[in-house]
Amino acid sequence: MNDEQILALEARARRHAALADSARLRVVDLLSAGDLSPTELRTRIGMTSNLLAHHLNVLEREGIVSRGRSEGDGRRSYVRLDPSALSGLVPLSTIDATRVVFICTANSARSQLARAIWNGNSPVPAVSAGTHPAQRVAPGAVQVAARHGLDLSDAVPASADGVVAASDLIITVCDRAHEEYPATALHWSVPDPVRGGTSEAFDAAFAELQSRVERLAPRVRLAA
């Protein structure tokens, strides 16, 4: 066994050790489909702030989770799971829904892209909406969609008011929208490409959304 193989084996052993705790496994389970703030994790698990901070530090040290500052309320952060660190270890429980609703603030980029990507990957239909819809879809979103064979040329931002039904799986794809929907089932903390405005920013958002959709779509079943 060469040095590289030994280092890889030691890294695997550290990840297994980090997961050899029921509380940390519960954190991983909760993050397996979406991002959560430390406060949301603490509420769902029923754990003190200090103890949760300890567990998150262990998971972060081994590259299993990472934290990023909210683009909405800058005092908040979101914890996300790095799926590459847990290949084959995250439980793939199923979710029943009649529809998936992607929500962001303006419904001009991330939620529109997520809807288009989802509808190409799942028989469960998806729509999108915004908490404060813009006048039009961002040109950068239309362009990045076209580069991937998706058509957003006729897409129009819509308000989330009155769109969401009890049987929907709601996924917020921007921090501001999530912070207006505290009971949202799932959250994906995707940076706003409109803020950057470059084609690279839109490409990065598309890649992140595509990766998230491809991981989640096989777990969502069309409810009767």
Rank of each mutant, 00 (worst) to 15 (best):
E60Y: 11
S122K: 05
P125L: 03
A165F: 07
Q5G: 14
P123S: 06
L86C: 07
R26T: 13
E60G: 14
V90K: 08
A185M: 10
S22P: 10
L36N: 06
A207C: 07
V28C: 11
T184K: 03
D35W: 05
T198I: 11
R115D: 00
E60F: 13
T98G: 15
G88D: 07
G63N: 04
R147N: 11
A11D: 05
P38S: 10
V213T: 02
V65H: 01
C104K: 05
A141Q: 03
M47A: 01
R147D: 13
A33L: 10
R176Y: 08
H178K: 08
E179I: 03
G140T: 05
V137Q: 03
F202E: 00
M1P: 07
P133H: 04
R99L: 01
P182E: 06
A177S: 06
G46K: 10
S211L: 15
A223L: 09
S70G: 02
D96E: 15
V137G: 02
I171M: 09
E180R: 12
P133F: 05
R219D: 04
N50I: 08
V65G: 00
L25H: 02
E40H: 12
V28Y: 13
S199M: 13
S128H: 06
D3T: 15
I170E: 02
R215S: 06
S199F: 09
T198F: 13
L9R: 07
S159E: 01
L59A: 03
R147M: 15
D203L: 14
N57R: 15
G120I: 10
D3N: 11
F102T: 01
L31R: 04
L209Y: 07
T48Q: 10
A13F: 14
C104S: 09
A109N: 01
A114F: 15
H54P: 01
R26P: 04
G34F: 13
G197P: 03
L113V: 08
H54C: 02
P83W: 10
D175R: 06
T43M: 03
D3V: 15
Q143F: 12
A177H: 02
P191H: 06
Y78C: 05
P218N: 04
M1G: 14
A141M: 06
E71P: 01
A185W: 13
S77P: 02
D192A: 07
R69T: 14
L59M: 09
V164L: 04
T184L: 00
I64N: 00
I45C: 06
G196M: 04
A158T: 15
P182R: 09
D96I: 09
